[in-house]
Amino acid sequence: MAVTTPTRPAPAARPARPARSSFAPLNFWRSTIGKKTVMAVTGLLMLAFLLAHMLGNLKIFYGRDDFDHYADWLRTIGEPVLHGAWYLWIQRFVLTLAVVLHAVSAYQLSRRDLKARPAKYAHKQRAKAGYAVHVMRYGGITLALFIIYHILDFTSLTLNRHGVEGAAYDNVVSSFSVWWVTAIYILAMIFLGLHIQHGFWSAAQTLGLNRPSRDRAVHGIATGLAVLLTVGFLIVPVAVLAGLVG
């Protein structure tokens, strides 16, 4: 019998993929959308913490007693159900977990993304996306390094010039009186603002909350949060450096 169609060539070798697991959360974590969902949820959790953190910082304008009392109160949240400072440690654990999951997802996704486009175009692409989009990866790494520095400065007090536990007000003033410490904070907070500006909208997109009718609102909230947190966090170090606090 005549063969009218030529034999089809063997399909090209495809990248190996792990078989689908019967454990659904594992499949979710393995997928690109699953990892982005983890990034969105952990990102929003950190954002909620930052809002509370920023508002708490502003209490410094009520003076030393008020601020130190507030710092002390943070250690008593949940009492008497929770033992002293237990809430704080629970929060630290949850936030560390969020940072780690956010960073691991970002690292794994970035590696995949860079591998997916190894060859660049000879003619440079004219990017339509804004600056905030382009500094997500470097900005994220900068923020991770900043968080380590920030914890050594004000939590463990290792790098703090005053470094007296319980004297939150004086610790803050001693650090921000140094111009280059304030400069580091200004730089980090600008990166934070850029990260949130794209990150918040991106999280809403990943969680499937965006609709064309909501697009302007979500963009507006993202920019609003970015400006609010950057300005809110920077008021304190700038005020200290300007001599308005301390």
């Binding site: 495809r14 993929r17 690109t32 990892k35 591998k115 989009v133 909208w201």
Partner: peptide, 18 residues
């Protein structure tokens, strides 16, 4: 579809809009 998409080696979405 998402499983097939990931298996092909395509990158993930970073919401750049390009």
């Amino acid at each position: 579809l998402v499983e097939a998409m990931d298996a092909e080696g395509f990158g993930g979405c970073t919401n750049t809009g390009e």
